[in-house]
Simulated assay, not measured.
Amino acid sequence: MKCKLCPLFLLLLILCCNVFAQEKKDSVTKTATTTSANADTSVVSSEKTVFSIIFGKYPKHREGVYITHGGDGPLLSFASMKNNGEHLRNIPRFTMFLNVGSNFNKDFSRNFGVFTGINLKNIGLISKPADSLKLKQRVYTLGVPLGIKVGDLSSGSLFFFAGGEIDMAINYKEKQFVDGDKVHKFNEWFSDRTPLLMPSLFAGFRFNPGFGLKVQYYPQNFFNKDFKTKDKDGNSVYPYKNLEANLMFVTFSYNFSGIDYFKVKRKRHYMKMKSGKAEFEVNY
């Protein structure tokens, strides 16, 4: 009986092996077909327009240090002058050139910030020691301000500023007029006729798109009382020994770049939807 069942058992074993081999072959063929289809789908997907949704939050204020360029434009100077304690007649001085500079700004919030920088200014005064004599005296200075800003700093619509500045006198120039005719002029680099360092205080306001008014006052004497020179006979003279002059000016300040402020959104969050080059934004 057992011998009769052996051929039947062997036939069943062969049939099972054939079925298993066929299923494995079909499985491999199916896998290859699926991989090929996925590759084709990937190619098609890469050619389609990608749609994305991005959620984000706006900063509370402009971050980091940023630079503004400009300076003091038209500048009108006034002086309080005394010679031997007596008032000395002087004339307001107006100039437009050359007053330029750059400031480095740091905002700590939407409404408060600080700044420093470097500015080139043309400051001076006009005096009349006598009816027939007029003197124009000016210096070019390089100044380093340090100040604060309070107001709408995010859009620059209106803010106030104040601080102090140290100016270094780099070029002194003097013109003498007699009866309206110019009779003498000279200029000196790093002259001893004025102090080398000239401290000052300033305050003002600025409004969009970057213009403003500023008042600046120099409490130190404009002239160096210890300056010594020689007269025609070779004698030592101190031309500014008894002269006191305190300078103040008003200027129409400006910024010609950096005034396009980063617009800090009133609504803090945003949702951007992009599809190709098209973009749509919702603030909330």
Rank of each mutant, 00 (worst) to 15 (best):
I118S: 15
S80G: 09
K230S: 11
S36V: 04
K274A: 14
A245N: 05
G156T: 00
V28C: 12
M273G: 05
T141S: 06
F51W: 08
Q220V: 15
V114D: 01
V50D: 05
M81R: 02
G258P: 01
D233Y: 10
L196A: 14
T34C: 08
I91W: 07
F280R: 08
F186Y: 14
G143V: 03
G71H: 00
M271T: 14
L8N: 02
F55M: 12
Y284F: 15
S102H: 02
L243W: 11
Q137W: 02
D72Y: 05
Y284T: 10
L243S: 03
F190T: 09
V264S: 09
N105A: 06
K136P: 00
P74F: 12
Y58E: 03
R268C: 06
Y172E: 01
Q216M: 07
V215F: 11
F207A: 05
D167M: 04
H269I: 12
L13S: 13
P129R: 08
V144W: 01
P239T: 02
I54N: 13
K134S: 10
L135I: 12
Q216A: 08
E244Y: 15
N187I: 11
G212E: 00
N224Q: 10
G204C: 02
H69E: 08
P59M: 10
K241H: 09
A278Q: 15
N187Y: 07
L98P: 14
G147T: 04
N224M: 04
S154A: 10
L13N: 09
Y238W: 13
F112L: 12
V100S: 09
L88K: 13
G147K: 00
K185T: 11
S109D: 06
T141C: 08
V264G: 10
G117A: 04
V114Q: 02
K185N: 15
N224P: 04
F9R: 13
A169H: 01
R193G: 05
E86I: 07
F94Q: 04
S42K: 14
R266G: 14
K82Q: 12
V114F: 05
